[in-house]
């Protein structure tokens, strides 16, 4: 079933065309990697999925409808930059998510935070950049959503924490949901991807099953990316 559909979608800011004629379908039960160099349009695509930006032309459908209140209920979104109030304590953050999202699983969040040795009394502003990112990911993954959209979830954390984050993503992923992960740290995440989407200068240049790519090109996705986007 096509859960997200981009139909001839373009987006411009002024005269600058950021996305050009995007046609893309995302199914349920798969983990997608949205991979592209800086400024290729990854975050713009993600913001459009989340209804934060409107397409200039073409259409986007989430579960058959345009983004809105209904789509926000079923999409759990980890933005590239934090939107949380840094004065909040973890306990307040949990309350915040409970208030906003019916599908938020408080017990799960507490369990995951406990594993990270984060206390409910800890304040966000006193955390390191990496810890903040982990806390936010835990909150996002503790929702029982149909689609998780993670914009650069491993950007700010060390390699050991990356493993923790991948584990968190995998343990909380269920077959009825999909995950869209945007990143340029490919070697770290390629083992968990079903499908790979390469985007460059606002266009989809590749959209294929990850293992099929490895078989055809006899190389890792990471190496293929380096080849494709060589400066």
């Amino acid at each position: 079933m096509q859960f997200v559909q981009f139909q001839d979608l373009s987006k411009s800011f002024g005269t600058k065309e950021i996305l050009k004629d995007i046609n893309l379908d995302l199914e349920k039960g798969k983990i997608y990697g949205l991979l592209g160099p800086n400024g290729s349009g990854k975050t713009t695509m993600i913001k459009i999925i989340n209804g934060l930006l409107q397409p200039s032309s073409g259409k986007i459908l989430i579960n058959g409808c345009e983004p809105g209140i209904e789509s926000k209920k079923i999409i759990s979104y980890l933005p590239e930059r934090t939107y949380l109030n840094m004065n909040m304590k973890v306990s307040e953050l949990i309350q915040f998510f409970k208030d906003f999202y019916d599908d938020f699983d408080e017990k799960k969040a507490i369990k995951l935070l406990y594993k990270l040795k984060i206390k409910e009394t800890d304040q966000l502003k006193n955390m390191s950049k990496g810890t903040k990112e982990k806390v936010q990911l835990v909150m996002v993954m503790s929702r029982k959503a149909d689609l998780y959209v993670l914009d650069e979830p491993i950007g700010g954390v060390d390699p050991a924490s990356r493993d923790y984050i991948l584990e968190t993503i995998l343990t909380n992923f269920n077959e009825d949901a999909s995950i869209l992960i945007s990143t340029h740290l490919i070697s770290d995440i390629e083992k968990i991807l079903d499908q790979v989407i390469f985007i460059n200068q606002g266009k989809i240049v590749l959209n294929e099953d990850a293992d099929t790519i490895r078989k055809k090109k006899k190389t890792t996705i990471d190496k293929l990316f380096r080849e494709e986007f060589k400066c």
């Binding site: 584990e167 995998l170 083992k191 968990i192 079903d194 990850a210």
Partner: peptide, 17 residues
């Protein structure tokens, strides 16, 4: 499948396959 997936951090669909 789930255990293997988190153990070796590989996509569950890949394990299934």
């Amino acid at each position: 499948v789930r255990e293997l997936s988190t153990m070796i951090r590989v996509n569950p669909n890949t394990i299934q396959r």
